[in-house]
Amino acid sequence: YETDHQDYCEVCQQGGEIILCDTCPRAYHMVCLDPDMEKAPEGKWSCPHCEKE
């Protein structure tokens, strides 16, 4: 199925295993987040940009 999420990391602009924000189209590698994540979040997750809003 098609999503509106970007298929690359917002921080480093590379693809790969990325996690998707449930609020906006941004996507991130877990290691590119500050602080980085050990494992993928369970349930709904909002990226740092959305958390600030």
Rank of each mutant, 00 (worst) to 15 (best):
residue 8 Y to G: 04
residue 17 E to V: 09
residue 39 K to H: 05
residue 19 I to W: 06
residue 13 Q to H: 08
residue 2 E to W: 15
residue 23 T to K: 06
residue 49 H to D: 05
residue 28 Y to K: 05
residue 47 C to I: 00
residue 4 D to N: 08
residue 35 P to L: 06
residue 51 E to Y: 06
residue 43 G to E: 14
residue 4 D to T: 07
residue 19 I to D: 07
residue 14 Q to I: 09
residue 19 I to L: 07
residue 49 H to W: 07
residue 29 H to P: 00
residue 35 P to D: 06
residue 7 D to T: 13
residue 1 Y to E: 15
residue 25 P to Y: 08
residue 25 P to F: 13
residue 45 W to A: 11
residue 13 Q to L: 09
residue 36 D to M: 06
residue 9 C to Q: 01
residue 34 D to L: 11
residue 20 L to C: 10
residue 14 Q to W: 04
residue 33 L to F: 12
residue 27 A to Q: 03
residue 8 Y to Q: 15
residue 11 V to Q: 05
residue 33 L to S: 14
residue 38 E to D: 09
residue 32 C to E: 02
residue 18 I to D: 10
residue 2 E to C: 15
residue 41 P to M: 10
residue 10 E to D: 08
residue 18 I to M: 12
residue 22 D to Y: 03
residue 26 R to P: 03
residue 46 S to V: 09
residue 14 Q to C: 04
residue 28 Y to L: 09
residue 23 T to R: 03
residue 29 H to T: 01
residue 44 K to D: 13
residue 9 C to G: 01
residue 50 C to D: 07
residue 1 Y to M: 15
residue 53 E to L: 08
residue 16 G to D: 15
residue 53 E to D: 02
residue 37 M to P: 12
residue 47 C to P: 01
residue 49 H to T: 07
residue 51 E to G: 14
residue 34 D to R: 07
residue 1 Y to I: 15
residue 48 P to W: 02
residue 19 I to H: 15
residue 38 E to L: 06
residue 48 P to S: 12
residue 50 C to S: 06
residue 50 C to N: 04
residue 1 Y to F: 13
residue 16 G to V: 04
residue 11 V to H: 14
residue 17 E to G: 07
residue 33 L to M: 09
residue 38 E to Y: 09
residue 2 E to I: 14
residue 19 I to S: 07
residue 17 E to Y: 10
residue 4 D to G: 11
residue 13 Q to T: 11
residue 11 V to I: 10
residue 17 E to K: 07
residue 46 S to W: 12
residue 20 L to A: 13
residue 8 Y to S: 13
residue 18 I to N: 04
residue 34 D to A: 09
residue 12 C to G: 01
residue 20 L to T: 12
residue 8 Y to C: 06
residue 2 E to D: 12
residue 32 C to K: 01
residue 36 D to C: 06
residue 46 S to F: 14
residue 23 T to V: 05
residue 33 L to T: 14
residue 44 K to N: 03
residue 28 Y to E: 02
residue 44 K to H: 04
residue 43 G to H: 02
residue 46 S to Q: 12
residue 23 T to N: 06
residue 49 H to V: 06
residue 20 L to H: 14
residue 7 D to L: 06
residue 25 P to A: 05
residue 29 H to I: 00
residue 6 Q to W: 03
residue 5 H to N: 14
residue 26 R to K: 10
